[in-house]
Design a protein around this nucleic acid. Structure first.
Ligand SMILES: [Zn+2]
Ligand SMILES: [Zn+2]
Ligand SMILES: [Zn+2]
Ligand SMILES: [Zn+2]
Lengths: 129, 129
DNA sequence: CTGCTATTGATAATCATTCTCAGCACTTTC
DNA sequence: GAAAGTGCTGAGAATGATTATCAATAGCAG
């Protein structure tokens, strides 16, 4: 059951880190391939899923596909995402955390979790329109 | 370009309304079929997409599929959803609306929108465990 | 009723994601 | 170092949801 360190996983981790915003498994795969890496698609999916499971990456679903991003490990936070270029800013929101927890409790729900994402057009993308 | 009223669309609207929580297009199709309706799958998808576009239904993505729910028309609100049975409660959150708008503005993002959903286990599902 | 055209639905086509499984690559054991 | 054990990889098949096709059907205006 020992976990092994392979260049494939490191390649995915590296490619993820070098991106400003959220990326899809497919586009990450294409990018790696175009940069000369012979990595396989299934491996990219596995690596991303592992990273997300270990808390080294955050993910969100958009238009039927999962997007991933290398995020500050171990910290719960949310994202402000540019709808156009994907540029992402991590945001803290203690008030929202508390609100989510209390709303669940008020209605008798336990084991609360939440999805909170803010989208918009970043300054750069606005100037291009 | 006139919109026509067909029994198919009404059937989908009705089936949606009779559900407590969010449902997938596939399960709605199955339910309709089992209740004797000869409706087609593509039509269910089209009807749901139309309802969502007209603001008569809300939708959210979960585990790679779109879920729909008949919601209070014209009102912006969020949802508290039971992870187990899908039971859904509509919730207002003016504070969160304001927070989302200001967070976007603070970082120079325009045309803000947001996704805010709270999940948990409803009282009924807790007692079954 | 008649004609126009939006709508329908069986089926094929897409697309992202997962599965299969044989071959490969580290590790550990002699 | 060679052999054995086992996690990892990847090409391609399989899956599952959603969308596109397109000929037949059925609202609806006149
Ligand atoms: Zn941008
Ligand atoms: Zn949070
Ligand atoms: Zn429940
Ligand atoms: Zn809101």
């Amino acid at each position: 059951m020992t976990k092994r360190v392979t260049w494939q996983r490191e390649a995915v981790r590296g490619a993820l880190s070098s991106s400003d915003g959220f990326v899809s498994a497919q586009s990450l795969y294409s990018a790696l391939r175009e940069s000369g890496s012979p990595i396989g698609l299934a491996t990219v999916y596995r690596a991303l899923s592992d990273l997300a499971g270990e808390g080294e990456a955050d993910s969100l679903q958009q238009e039927g596909e999962s997007l991933y991003r290398a995020c500050t490990p171990g910290s719960h936070h949310h994202h402000l995402i540019c709808r156009n270029c994907g540029l992402t800013v991590e945001i803290e929101a203690d008030a929202v955390e508390a609100w989510a927890a209390s709303v669940a409790a008020d209605h008798g729900f336990t084991q609360p979790s939440h999805v909170v994402d803010v989208f918009g057009l970043c300054a750069n993308c606005q100037s291009l329109s």
